[in-house]
Nucleic acid binder design. Sequence first.
DNA 1: GTTTGTGAACCACTTCACAGCC
DNA 2: GGCTGTGAAGTGGTTCACAAAC
Lengths: 222, 222
Amino acid sequence: MRAGRRIPEATVARLPVYLRVLHEAAEERTATVSSEDLASRAGVNAAQVRKDLSHLGSYGTRGIGYNVVYLVREINRVLGVGDDRRVAIVGIGNLGHALAGYGGFVSRGFRVVAAFDADPSKVGSRLGDLTVLPMSDLGDAVSEKGVTMALITTPAHAAQGVADALVAAGVASLLNFAPTTLQVPEGVVLRQVDLGVELQILSFYEQRAGRDVRDEATLARA
Amino acid sequence: MRAGRRIPEATVARLPVYLRVLHEAAEERTATVSSEDLASRAGVNAAQVRKDLSHLGSYGTRGIGYNVVYLVREINRVLGVGDDRRVAIVGIGNLGHALAGYGGFVSRGFRVVAAFDADPSKVGSRLGDLTVLPMSDLGDAVSEKGVTMALITTPAHAAQGVADALVAAGVASLLNFAPTTLQVPEGVVLRQVDLGVELQILSFYEQRAGRDVRDEATLARA
DNA sequence: GTTTGTGAACCACTTCACAGCC
DNA sequence: GGCTGTGAAGTGGTTCACAAAC
């Protein structure tokens, strides 16, 4: 598969993991990595790595491996990260609060620039260097601050309404943490993270682990 | 495929989603659901639902659908949920704090019974009705409280050490939120949730959404 | 008529194995 | 000799389509 054609979904889900591993390698001043290195650090098969990377183009050198800095740049480009993306959080409960302060977003090129809550007692409170805004400000704040992605951390019953409001405001990428299935119009990208689901999946494999030994390393959402 | 043989990984990942939908249906006093109902509420294809459920056995009635209460019981049994599972959280930063109070766990049969942190200034602080314990208490507390699953919410650099300690203490199911790949011995079940990865995947599809329209609804873990 | 359960067809992803390049 | 890039083979998952059950 030569240069960037349609990239398989499964590959897209692994690219961020490679990126993480490559950053670690870069910190250790490693100039090049082999598919074998990358694979073992990412917890996948080496052939997998090579095939995944071949979807982006031919960025390796036979006999040598992949140039770390160069590969980081290419993956960032493919994922559309790098120029910092503006993120809003709707629903400032425990989880929303935690995500607003989560360092793992900033270090990956995302910046939380707005926070909203429907509860008047929360509106106006500080959240790091942000002020929690009322839902009625959503439309204006989204366009003023150039928000392109939003995290929904409301209770389940409020999530669909919030999603509708976000879509109406022009936000086209939603990451939903509320434990409910959302409907969005075509063209809007939606991903679901349900922490309860993760524990239940874990529970299944733990239960099995007694009889047949199973070791499941999985990526998120993946 | 008659009655419970080996259940495909992809099916296991969807069962908790069906469970969530079934609980919603139960609240609405719906006695039976068709695969079509279930599918549309879960965001998948109806044939998928039927095939998934057929792996558990034949619990539907042709011409009628599936009995909600009965199906909930069966899925819970297969997943090994129901008898409340004891969970520990290691790393009481923003995220650990939020997860300790997350209602979505309790309502799904999981109970957070212990919290640990390596930072002496956090040890002894209250967290709901728990007290944060030092890492040195991990072994004892795990066995006393019957912990079988743990959430790792430490910084990345501490995660492997914590995983090792948990495994040594006899915890055989780990859900890792730290953005790093962990190594665990055979027989230990490990799942990875990386919130930064989720945003990066979202970013990729958002970027595409302009040209070709893609709408990606995904379940967690994938 | 409705809806399940399932073989068969299809499609996507993974792994193998090796030619080609350094 | 070492390592990538990739066809080919293998595996697993999804969707179709229909017979069987109600």
